[in-house]
């Protein structure tokens, strides 16, 4: 996949380390990320690859600040052009930029049993700055694209199948997308047909200038949508390069520390 033409660095991670101190157990420290350096550009889709336990989800969570940073910098360029270090922002500042500047889509739908499908996605749009009618319209469009048709819109999410929930989750994550989107196994529960639809939407993101950092365990998905791969192992980046180059190696299992 070729890199899209808007070649501006949006995110720069420097010397990022993460440890957990387990006071509950015996106060031991477990370091899960070691000295990470990388950057992501606008309009670029970067895939995080590696075996489970490599630290991919952990990295996504730190970028979203669901995990705190132990040491290091997470430099992010706001829409205004200003660079900020996410690791140094106040909680209120994080709350202010989440949603509009940085988004996170996990594989599980967040707990909200009694919301209807359309409400959930519309609400997500509103939180990104759309007004009521715009949000509703785009919600409908996005759901259609994911083949969640009108009959399901007023249904409560609790009665959906796993695959349907995931597609609703994706719709909510992608509506009026933020500038940096973090995806954590967003299509794991989808059948091949729906997976294709979802990947098409994800591909569109970068065409519109969104920067994406994604975790897929499916190498075909990585091949389809990503420009670059960052391979991780045991909390470290072991290799980084264009998808064309690295993917064949990944397929053969040739990436180790």
């Amino acid at each position: 996949m070729e890199l899209s033409t808007s070649d501006t660095t949006l995110l720069e991670v420097q010397n990022l380390n993460k440890s957990f101190i387990l006071h509950n157990i015996d106060g031991r420290t477990i370091q899960v990320l070691h000295d990470l350096h990388f950057s992501i550009n606008a309009g670029e889709h970067v895939a995080l690859a590696g075996t489970s336990g490599a630290g991919k989800s952990t990295l996504l969570r730190i970028l979203f600040q669901t995990y705190s940073t132990s040491t290091g910098s997470i430099l992010f360029k706001l829409a205004s052009g200003e660079w900020v270090d996410l690791a140094q922002l106040t909680d209120s500042e994080i709350v202010a930029i989440r949603g509009r500047e940085i988004g996170y889509v996990s594989q599980f739908l967040r707990a909200q049993p009694r919301r209807s499908v359309i409400d959930l996605v519309t609400r997500a749009g509103i939180s990104r700055g759309l007004d009521n009618s715009e949000a509703r319209e785009q919600a409908q469009m996005t759901l259609e694209k994911l083949h969640i048709g009108k009959p399901l819109w007023e249904v409560h999410t609790s009665v959906l199948s796993g695959g349907e929930k995931q597609r609703v989750n994706i719709a909510a994550g992608l509506i009026s997308p933020p500038r940096l989107l973090l995806l954590d196994e967003p299509i794991s529960a989808l059948d091949p047909e729906n997976r294709t639809l979802a990947l098409e939407l994800i591909q569109e993101l970068t065409l519109n200038g969104v920067a994406v950092l994604a975790v897929f365990h499916d190498l075909d998905a990585i091949e389809q949508v990503s420009h670059r791969i960052i391979a991780m192992e045991k909390g470290r980046i072991v290799q980084e390069g264009p998808t064309n180059t690295l993917l064949p190696l990944l397929r053969k299992g040739y990436i180790h520390s």
Partner: peptide, 17 residues
């Protein structure tokens, strides 16, 4: 702290408990 941070990465020993 941020609510999701408290739930997933509590810092203070009592919070962890």
């Amino acid at each position: 702290t941020l609510t999701d941070q408290l739930l997933e990465d509590p810092q203070h020993p009592y919070s962890q408990e």
